[in-house]
Simulated assay, not measured.
Amino acid sequence: MLNPLVDTIFLIICDKKVHKVHTLAGKLSHRRAFPQLDSEPNKELFKKNFLIMNALYQLQTELLQEGLFLSVSSMHIQLVDISKNTPLPPDPLRDYYLDWENYETTKEEVLELLDTFWQSFAPPSIPTNIPTTVIQGICKHWQLPYPYQRQQLKRTWRQQAVLQHPDKDAGCEQRFKQLKEEYDLLKAHLAVID
């Protein structure tokens, strides 16, 4: 199935500069390329991301015959010149995003995928000796009660992350990273007191 975003995304990436999925999403939203895809915010975010990645991988395959390689990852999308008919390396993400059956997924599957994505922002090691006053300060800022339960933390984290996700128009990559660090501290604190 031809993705309607293919031509619009090609016009954006043909400058051969490095792009990111969240900046592409912003440019596409600015051009009003997306209708509302889902009423549930996490599924809406997933579907936008799916359509962008699907279009990128369709372009990657098409452009290869023209001597162009489209490098595709969430933080590095770039069109470069190569020898014609260079084979594409195996890529499980390409297989996933080119399978339209993956577009319609359950809310639970989307949350699991988003959790996996957000976990990739985790720092290599999380200190466990954070003073309680620091944890309480984060809780106050997050409007999370202290002491808190694992489910309360998870729910609050998801709400915060959806609002600040870099793929959102109002999202902020720096704030998202900060939230992830705070979330990791709050989880580590839970592990210590459990």
Rank of each mutant, 00 (worst) to 15 (best):
M1T: 12
W100G: 07
S39C: 03
D169W: 11
A55I: 01
L79D: 02
A161I: 05
V162P: 05
E108M: 11
F10R: 10
L98W: 13
M1Q: 13
A188G: 14
F10W: 09
Q60P: 07
H19F: 04
T116Q: 15
I126D: 09
Q143K: 12
E108Y: 08
Q58A: 11
T116G: 07
P123M: 04
L153F: 12
F69Q: 11
C139A: 03
T128Q: 12
C14R: 13
N42D: 02
S29K: 12
K43G: 04
F121T: 01
L190T: 03
P145W: 08
L24H: 01
L28R: 01
A33F: 02
H30A: 06
E44V: 05
H22C: 10
H19P: 04
L59N: 01
N3D: 11
P145M: 08
S74D: 04
Q159M: 15
N3R: 03
V110C: 03
A161M: 09
S74Y: 12
L163C: 15
S39V: 07
P89D: 08
A55W: 01
D38N: 14
L98V: 00
L111R: 06
V80C: 05
A188E: 05
H22E: 10
V80T: 13
C14P: 01
L114G: 02
R31H: 11
E62R: 08
C14W: 06
L186P: 02
E40M: 15
L70F: 00
L37S: 09
L93D: 05
E66S: 13
Q58I: 00
S74L: 09
P145E: 01
E173R: 13
A25N: 12
L51G: 10
Q151M: 11
E112S: 06
E182L: 06
A25L: 11
N3K: 09
C139S: 00
A170Q: 15
V80G: 05
M1V: 05
T116W: 10
L59M: 00
L88H: 05
P87T: 12
Q159T: 12
K20Y: 09
F46S: 00
E62S: 12
Q160C: 08
F117S: 11
I138H: 01
P131A: 07
L45E: 03
